[in-house]
Write a protein that binds this DNA or RNA. Structure first.
Length: 791
DNA sequence: CAGTGAGCGAGCTTCCGCTTGACTT
């Protein structure tokens, strides 16, 4: 770097985040240089656990590869400074970062001050500088215990899985519980038996004072179990008379939700904007770096006083005094450490920002949620109208909601995961007791109970937070880890067609018909794989203590004791590790290999057994035994089949593949399941079946030809140009635009050149240049900066 | 790069929590 820092600064302040450093430097002025450590600078060594088990669990810390440069820079700056202020976050991890810094930078206690603040405001920073303290070694030790325990659990448990289930699998305090939640929910769904009942609804009409006709909808306060009962009831109603039995008005209020934490932001952004938790975090990161919002990894719902003042002013001037209500929220989540503020606009008087569409949307969400949190309750009047049917004990009920005062609803309405099955309450015409009513329509519809909902990314995060498992900085990474390990797939599943009975009254008579609906369609949900189920069962069986839902909560209590100085951290670890290690050794000895094997029955043709199990490449069905003379036949399960639930008949069908569908252009069309899933093969070429649309067992020739043609068209578009001179050389259309493909290597085309216009010579030149730059890149580690064009 | 699935043994995999970039075939 060309710009040399002034060596004369008296004070060096170190924070965790570079964006924070920039802001704070402005507050502190001339005499302070503010730098960042970019989070932790050291971690346990990878080899031999990084822990000396026989030497009282002495941790072996090494400076992380990507932090060496940061550390050397900080080291020289610290040497020159008179005072070093360690201003990492005020939580366990932050305290540890401060301690690692003091160790690595060799800071004497005279020269070092530890300071903390929960909000990035000038007042808070200056106050912090006024009241420095020493590093809290007990808190540091609690962090070391946390780190060592996680390493011990992760690095002892994972190898057990490699031996007993499959290589490269992983287990850990957090991820294994996340997987367990998914597996157990999936089994609840397997076991779920829907029941159904008949819901009766009616539309009534009446004339108001002015003689105009008004209508409203009402639902019967009873559900019938059988179609016969529903039918009988409708028949009785066909010629009955109706009147208003009672009108009850009840006032109620609604209060705004707390400002955003990481977890609630992820949930709302998923529900309202359709973002994945990863997307939400990276967009929020950009907003944070641009100085538009406060820190986005937080478990706190607190707002800085100064921010509340700005918010109150903004509400007053835009909506009026009566919309203001200052509130202080309390965190509900277990184990919250509240080192930061809630997520809010840095300048709460700024309602809109510049940026990408996604950034604007997320900012808008944060802005509105923040404002709403300091606004008055909404006042609502709920009206319930009961309708009496002459000679019947049941009543129809209609509910209406009138917002008397909107309050916070003016800016923000929190959404919920609940399926909107019920008609939302709406406006009711004015009615009074004994008003006679005309029956306009009457219908009964069969409704099925819902199975337990599958987790989405965001709802899994909410559950983990509820259990106190994981931290704001790890929610998104945990979700991608369990996907990478093959425990979870995130996908859409089409629903199944289902029939329901529908009854209605027309011309004074009851009619009935069966209608169709699509039920149980899933979008963007997390599905546990068979591997997840086998691994989970193994862990629950042999390590119930570790994968128990309250394991984290229990060890957190232990860490708290350490933080208070009541327990020595090595002692706590020893108490855990001794029995745990025995448990590991015993498991290695006595457990057998787990494949989830299930016997389904004997093949009617050959009499050989059919089993399903996890093979080297995933779940599969096997026909015949491996002890036989003849080699067994194998067939992979399809995506939506599970070892646990596949039936004998379904498994038998798998062996009908590959299946010949017929011919197209005089060549055979064959459908099968291979390494990359179901495919159609024709003329030596493969086309993948569409996920969730095509089924290899039922697909017909017409559809297969359709897929083949589609693929051809795509290939045509993919190829921009080929050359007579050399068949290996092609210009193709890729994900990032056109590129040159030559002998299995790819080369860039400069942005200012028209791909289709390139000549054979042009391409050769680009290939040569590409090869050159690759060599220089691998020699030097890209220290040369790319010169950006200016115009 | 497509109807994979033996068994052996090399050498590899793996945790959680704190931070941001680099740069796509």
């Amino acid at each position: 770097m060309a710009k040399k820092e002034k060596a004369t600064e008296e004070n060096l302040v170190i924070v965790e985040s570079p964006a924070k450093a920039k802001t704070i430097e402005k507050f502190l002025g001339q005499n302070f240089l503010v730098k960042s450590s970019f989070g932790h600078i050291r971690d346990l060594a990878k080899k031999d656990f990084g822990i000396d088990i026989n030497n009282n669990y002495a941790p072996q810390y090494v400076i992380s590869e990507d932090k060496k440069q940061v550390v050397s820079e900080l080291r020289s700056l610290a040497q020159e400074a008179k005072t070093v202020w360690l201003a990492s976050d005020e939580d366990r991890e932050g305290e540890a970062i401060a301690w690692h810094l003091s160790e690595v930078l060799n800071l004497s206690s005279e020269k070092t001050r530890r300071i903390v603040f929960h909000e990035i405001t000038k007042e808070a920073i200056l106050r912090a500088i006024e009241s420095p303290r020493n590093i809290d070694q007990n808190l540091v030790n609690a962090q070391q215990a946390r780190r060592v325990l996680d390493r011990l659990v992760g690095f002892e448990l994972s190898p057990v899985l490699w031996k007993k289930v499959k290589p490269s699998l992983s287990a850990g305090r957090v991820q294994s519980v996340a997987v367990r939640l998914l597996v157990e929910r999936e089994r609840e769904i397997f076991d779920f038996k829907p029941d159904s009942s008949f819901r009766v609804s009616a539309v009534f009409s009446l004339f108001d004072d002015k003689g105009s006709q008004k209508e409203f909808k009402a639902e019967l306060n009873h559900r019938f179990q059988t179609v016969g009962e529903a039918r009988a009831f409708l028949e009785q109603c066909a010629n009955a008379s109706f009147k208003v039995h009672s009108v009850i008005k009840k006032p109620s209020t609604k209060s705004p939700a707390a400002p955003f934490t990481t977890s609630t932001l992820q949930q709302e952004a998923a529900r309202k904007l359709g973002f994945s938790v990863g997307q939400t975090m990276s967009i929020a990161q950009r907003l944070y770096e641009a100085g538009k919002i406060t820190y986005m990894r937080t478990d706190s719902v607190n707002l800085a006083k100064s921010a509340v003042n700005t918010i109150v002013d903004a509400i007053k001037s835009e909506m009026g005094e009566k919309y203001v209500k200052v509130r202080q929220f309390k965190t509900k989540s277990k184990g919250a450490q509240e080192a930061h503020e809630a997520i809010r606009p840095t300048y709460p008087n700024v309602a809109t920002i510049e940026g990408t569409a996604a950034e604007k949307k997320l900012y808008d969400l944060i802005y509105k949620r923040t404002m709403a949190s300091q606004m008055s309750d909404a006042i609502i009047e709920k009206t319930t109208v009961a309708v009496e049917i002459a000679g019947q004990k049941y009543q129809f009920v209609a509910t209406g909601e009138v917002v008397k005062f909107d309050g916070f609803l003016k800016v923000y309405i929190e959404s919920s995961d609940k399926e909107e099955d019920e008609e939302s309450a709406d406006f009711l015409p004015p009615v009074k007791e004994n008003d006679p009513l005309d029956l306009k329509t009457l219908e009964a519809r069969q409704r099925f109970s819902h199975k337990p909902p599958r987790y989405s990314e965001a709802s899994l995060v909410r559950k983990l937070e509820e259990l106190g498992i994981g931290r704001p900085s790890t929610y998104a990474p945990t979700i991608s880890t369990i996907q990478q390990r093959g425990y979870v797939v995130k996908e859409d599943r089409p629903g199944e067609e289902r029939h329901y009975q529908y009854l209605w009254i027309e011309d004074g008579k009851v009619h009935q018909e069966a209608r169709k609906e699509i039920a149980n369609a899933e979008r963007n949900k997390l599905f546990p794989t068979d591997i997840a189920m086998v691994v989970n069962d193994f862990l629950v069986n042999y390590f119930p203590n570790i994968v128990s839902y309250d394991f984290t909560a229990r060890v957190e209590q232990e860490f708290d004791e350490i933080a208070m100085g009541k327990v020595e951290w090595q002692k706590a670890i020893d108490n855990f590790y001794k029995p745990f290690h025995r448990q590991v050794e015993e498991t290695l000895e006595k457990s057998t290999r787990e494949t989830g094997e299930r016997f389904l029955g004997n093949d009617p043709k050959t009499g050989k057994p059919i089993i399903v199990r996890i093979g080297r490449f995933g779940p599969m069905a096997q026909l015949g035994s491996s002890d036989d003379e003849e080699k067994p036949r194998y067939a992979p399960l399809t995506r939506d089949q599970h070892i646990e639930t596949i039936t004998f008949e379904e498994a038998l069908k798998l062996f009908e593949l590959p299946r010949e569908l017929g011919t197209f252009e005089d060549k055979k069309v064959v459908v099968g399941v291979g390494r990359f899933g179901p495919y159609v093969r024709h003329d030596g070429k493969f086309v993948s079946l569409k996920k969730g649309v095509d089924d290899p067992l039922t697909i017909d020739l017409d559809r297969a030809i359709e897929l083949i043609k589609e693929k051809r068209e795509k290939d045509n578009k993919k190829t921009i140009k080929t050359f007579e001179e050399d068949k290996d050389l092609q210009i193709l259309n890729g994900r990032w635009g056109p590129y040159i493909s030559y002998k299995k290597k790819n080369y860039k085309i400069p942005k200012d050149q028209e791909a289709a216009a390139l000549s054979y010579e042009d391409c050769l030149r680009l290939i040569e240049e590409g090869d050159k730059s690759k060599k220089s890149k691998s020699k030097k580690k890209s220290t040369s900066k790319r010169t950006s064009k200016k115009d």
